[in-house]
């Protein structure tokens, strides 16, 4: 007779595992990846491959030579971080800068805290912000989105993002109507499909929302975070627009430009750095939405979602301690 195993209940386990979750996120990013390849061609492929490979290699090297612990690069978390980093940078960035960004992403933001599950901040965003501050020129000269196989319409290689145009215009004292007639400003269809300037992954709101719905369906993310971010941005931008429509653009513009969708769906929902219960997640989302729109409307940068997410990441432990899930059998005091 074979020896019996003794362990505590439960004796069965669901089919959830870390690898599955991580690869579900990867699959959810495929539409956005295809869109970026469509608009930026081989450059997009180069950036994504470099970023993913660099993240994998750095993680492997750190685990093998510095931590000297088990190698866990096949759990998919480094792949996710690599793709997210690639999504957050322009397609025409030099390769060595991607490597530097990946080193910060994996080395500083993830492994120095102890690896997967212990990082307080979203690693890809830390990498992105590091790159934005270190290489401001390269990180803000966005390549013109040019559909694959389409003839080149202009000779220009780079152009501003919609948000950049807006900020510049408002800064120069123009009214919204004057800004919107700029030929570089994308129209609504372009904004939905992603035919505009910007970083690789933030192009197409449709592709991002598709991936988001897939992840909600597979229970990898909760709807609370993205929805509360998007609603907050919409409401605050809407109020501003109602007060002064010539100074503040309509809220729908804010939803479909810049990194809002990418940040709300893929970055803010990062399991590790977001709060642990539903109430907390909503508070977290509202916080991100508020900071984002405040930076966009009144800050120096045209885009604020990365800073907003990183700032709220810092509040996550506090949110976890303050907001508790609804306990069974505890009647809230009236």
């Amino acid at each position: 007779m074979s020896t019996f195993t003794i362990s505590g209940s439960p004796h069965i386990h669901g089919d959830e595992n870390v690898k599955k979750i991580m690869y579900t996120v990867v699959y959810a990013m495929v539409p956005a990846m295809l869109v970026s390849v469509y608009f930026f061609g081989m450059d997009a492929l180069r950036v994504m491959l470099t970023s993913v490979l660099a993240c994998l290699v750095f993680e492997w090297a750190i685990q093998k030579y510095i931590i000297k612990g088990p190698i866990t690069i096949n759990d998919g978390s480094a792949v996710v971080a690599g793709i997210l980093l690639a999504f957050n940078i322009p397609a025409n960035i030099p390769t060595w800068m991607i490597l530097a960004g990946a080193l910060i992403t994996i080395g500083v933001a993830k492994m120095s805290f102890g690896g997967l599950g212990r990082n307080p901040f979203n690693p890809a965003l830390v990498g992105r912000v590091f790159m934005l501050i270190s290489f401001p020129v390269q990180m803000t000269s966005w390549p013109i989105a040019k559909p694959l196989f389409a003839p080149a319409l202009t000779d220009a290689l780079t152009g501003p993002t919609a948000l950049g145009l807006l900020k510049e215009g408002v800064g120069a004292g123009k009214t919204i109507d004057q800004i919107m007639v700029d030929p570089q400003m994308p129209d609504y269809i372009d904004r939905l499909t992603g035919h505009m300037g910007g970083s690789m992954g933030e192009m197409s709101a449709i592709a991002l929302i598709l991936g988001g719905i897939f992840m909600v369906w597979r229970k990898v993310i909760n709807w609370q975070v993205p929805v509360s971010i998007i609603l907050t941005v919409f409401v605050v931008a809407g109020i501003a627009h109602l007060v002064d429509p010539q100074h503040y653009i309509d809220p729908v513009f804010h939803l479909f430009t810049g990194g809002l969708m990418l940040g709300a769906i893929y970055m803010a929902t990062d399991m590790v750095s977001s709060p642990m219960n539903m109430t907390g997640k909503i508070v977290f989302g509202i916080g991100i939405g508020l900071i984002t729109i405040i930076i966009r409307l009144w800050g120096a940068y045209p885009e604020g979602i990365s800073f907003a997410i990183l700032i709220m990441n810092a509040f996550t432990p506090h949110i976890n301690n303050t907001f508790k899930p609804k306990r069974f059998g505890i009647v809230s005091k009236k």
Binding site: T3, F4, T5, I6, S7, G8
Partner: peptide, 19 residues
């Protein structure tokens, strides 16, 4: 000699309750 195999967290306090 072991007649059984324990599979769980490495803490005596818990195993003590289990078996």
């Amino acid at each position: 000699p072991a007649k059984l195999q324990y599979d769980g967290p490495s803490t005596c306090a818990f195993a003590q309750n289990l078996f």
